[in-house]
Structures are given as structure tokens and as C-alpha cells.
Design a protein around this nucleic acid. Structure first.
Lengths: 234, 234
DNA sequence: CCGGATCCGAATCGATACTG
DNA sequence: CAGTATCGATTCGGATCCGG
């Protein structure tokens, strides 16, 4: 399959399976849920279609992705259980890369799936448990999603939902968001802890559309990546 | 620098910085300690020298690696604090890839650094704390290292050491290993939990060179990757 | 519209040779 | 020891096309 690194080692084995360009971004999107070919292409606007289909085939051959035909609804790709275990890898990568993010390049997009995984990356279960359950509605660019924090667990779903309302009701996730905010790229700085919530509002980096502005403090405490000072013996 | 994925996202940022071929394997080796160019080339026998120097330059430009001139001892490359934070990423990748490892391909090598990181990947601090402190000497292929477990912490160093003996004594790591074993690739199965210690000895997958064979049970409990059954709601 | 396959120029990688 | 230089082999990117 992929060119070998010539090592009998877990890291090199992993990189042979998911180290090719675009592969882990496909996995990232599939970690949010099963996706159709077209969904993936839309969520990864810069991936050439031949690369997307090549990666999907390789991921299937490796037992990471499975292709499922839905009754009367077309095809979806979904992670196998083994593929879902890549969550730790993607979260670790996201956590590390988040700190290196500067201002967005021209033409950079924020997608529903990437924002969903970013929220999962930054989510602090213990910080969440220390505060009242809250539902946040977050708008970034033309992406909008509802993040519901309850009992130390996080659920994220798109807000302009294609899902039937009764499904939402059934999962008990439906609830009026206590805070609705619209943010630009500097929401990253709020989560990274380099921009205080009140400063973010004062500077217009975050707009409160509904709810009490003070709840942004709770948001920032719940979704937070600490500097992790990296004091370690070499 | 690298071609952009066109997303404002932590995962894609990380992949732009360390997603190129060989980059994370270089980081893996540097996580064990500072290395000279020649050390890296030896630990990554299949990397073309032009790629190695290109990656080292890119990693330096990204602030992940630093090039340090030692007094009268040449140059070494070492991770910056930010680079050292990639440990979580490399360990997560190693843990995941370890389970996908089959039999080694022809010509696959096991290096000191890859084996050291594999032991770190599989190390269970709580399992270690539940048992007496132990020093293991492990030979795989032509690689030999000493893994010292004390107070729930792991220290690994090469056994045919170029380091002065008094340095070893100063760090308190020096101690006669209670168990010395020589193993082939199937040591992987012992760590993965698919080959029981006594069966490994019976089948000749692991040879006990010194110490009590029963200590291999302790080794297997200390260095272990559980199946992590991945039962999760899709 | 969905789910790709095909073609081709550009960029990257791999192998080897060579240099201060 | 610490890399450059070169060049053929691969892979990637962009665009187009095609069957359902």
C-alpha cells in the first residue's frame, strides 16, 4: 500500500495508514458522524476529488472506514470501531495545532465538522461539571452550531438542522440556548486563553446575540486549552 | 511553507507543520533526547538525506526543533518546549498504530529510539505502582536497553552505553536488572496482550537470559496496551 | 445532484553521488 | 560529520468528464 518507512514500530505503522495527505482530515470529519462523499468534499473544499476517493479506498482497505448503503438515501462513509479509536490522535493533534494557529489565511474556511471537533478538543469535563448545565449557540462565519453541556458531557449539533425535530426531542438535547454568540476567528484566542471574555466583547471579537454577556465567562471556562507550560527534564 | 489545507482549524494547522512525510518520526526520535544529524540518519535508515535536512529546516522554521552547537562536540538537534508538547500526539499515534502492527516486513528495523518510545507508549504508571520497582534489560534484534521502573515512573536508556558510568550512578538509575530478556518481534504480542508471557517463553518468542522467568508477567503488566473495546454511540 | 474516473502539469519524494 | 546536488519515479492538484 503506502511506501513503508522500514521500521517495526507503532508510530510508523500508524503513519503508513493515516499519514498521507488529507487522510486525518477525512477522519476528523467522520469522527463527527457518517458522511456522504459530497459532504466530505464540501467539508474539505480544497481536496481534489481523485485524492478524496483514493484516500477513502485506502482507509477502507485499512479497516478504518466502512462504506454503508442507506436504504433509499445513498451511500455514507463511517468509521469502523478501530477508526473511531483515532479520536485520541485527532484530539491530540488538534490541541497542539490550536496553539500554533495565527490569523486565518485568505480563503481559509471554518466548517461545521472542524468547529465541532475544535469544541471537543477544548472541552473540559471537570470545568463543565463545576458549573450549571448550559446550552450555547455559536456562529462563526456561516457555520452555526448548538453546544449543549450537561452532566459533564458535551453534545454538539448543527443549528440549522436537517434532522427531524422529534429526533432532537427524543435525545433530550433540545433546549433553548442560554447564550447565542457570533464570533470571528478571534474566538480562537478566547479558547486559547489569550483574550479575556469581556475584552473579546469590548473589542467586537465576539457579539452576544442573545442571553447574558456574562455567560461568555462560563463558555471560556468550559472550552479552554491551557498553556501546559511544558516544564520537563530533557 | 507547506501547502495549505485551506481551513482555520487546529488539526489542519498541526498537519501543515508536522504532517509531511518523515516529520513525526524525526520528532519521535528527538523525544528520546537530542540527536545529531548522523544519529537521526542512522535511526531512520530509509530517509533520504535531502529529505532529512529539508524536514529539519522546516521543523526549525516552525519553532519545533532547535539546532544547538555543543562545545567541541559538533551539532545536535533538540526539541523546543513547544516541540516537546508533541509527545501526546506521538504517543497517541504509537498506541493506535501498535495495534495494527502485524509481522515485520522484510528489512524492517527496530531502533533504540523507536523501542524506547514504544515502551513509553505502553507504560502503565498505575500498574507499575502496584508492583515492586524493577529494572528490565530488553534485547530486540541488535538493540538493547535498560528500562527502570521506580515510583511509578519509567526511565529508559541504552544498555551498551556511551555515557560515563558516574553519570549513571549520579542519576540513581544504575542497578542490576532483575530480568534480562531477548525477544523477537513477537514481543509486540506480549505487550498487546495477545500472547501470554508463559506462552511467549514456551514458544521461544522471548528468551530469559537472566533473572526469574516469572518476572515476565510483571513486565507484561507494566507495559501493556489494552484492547480499549471502543463501545461508543456512533 | 451524487459518486466518482480520467488526464495532465506541478510539486514532492527517493536514490545516489558528491562536497566543505 | 553534516549536509548539497541531481535526476528519475511518485504523488498531488486542478480540471474535466461520465454514468446513474
Amino acid at each position: 500500500m503506502a511506501r513503508s518507512f522500514g521500521q517495526y514500530c507503532g508510530v510508523s505503522t500508524a503513519l503508513e495508514l493515516v499519514g498521507e495527505r488529507w487522510a486525518l482530515l477525512i477522519v476528523r470529519d467522520l469522527l463527527v458522524g457518517p458522511r456522504r462523499y459530497t459532504d466530505l468534499k464540501q467539508g474539505l473544499p480544497r481536496v481534489p476529488t481523485n485524492i478524496l476517493s483514493a484516500r477513502l479506498r485506502e482507509l477502507q482497505d485499512a479497516g478504518i472506514v466502512r462504506r454503508v448503503a442507506l436504504a433509499h438515501c445513498g451511500l455514507v462513509y463511517e468509521l469502523t470501531p478501530y477508526g473511531r479509536e483515532l479520536e485520541d490522535v485527532v484530539l491530540a493533534l488538534g490541541r497542539w495545532g490550536f496553539k500554533a494557529m495565527g490569523a486565518p489565511e485568505d480563503g481559509d474556511v471554518v466548517t461545521i465538522d472542524s468547529l465541532t471537533m475544535a469544541l471537543r478538543t477544548a472541552f473540559r469535563p471537570d470545568a463543565a461539571r463545576a458549573q450549571p448545565d448550559t446550552a450555547y449557540e455559536l456562529h462563526v462565519g456561516d457555520v452555526a452550531l448548538l453546544a449543549t453541556v450537561a452532566n459533564g458531557a458535551l453534545a454538539v449539533r448543527p443549528v440549522a438542522n436537517a434532522r427531524p425535530v422529534d429526533l432532537v426531542a427524543a435525545t433530550g438535547e433540545a433546549r433553548e440556548p442560554q447564550l447565542v454568540i457570533a464570533a470571528g476567528p478571534r474566538i480562537r484566542d478566547v479558547i486559547a486563553g489569550t483574550l479575556a471574555p469581556d475584552a473579546a466583547i469590548a473589542e467586537g471579537a465576539v457579539h452576544v446575540l442573545a442571553g447574558e454577556a456574562a455567560l461568555l465567562e462560563r463558555f471560556a471556562a468550559t472550552f479552554h486549552l491551557d498553556p501546559e507550560v511544558a516544564e520537563r527534564a530533557s
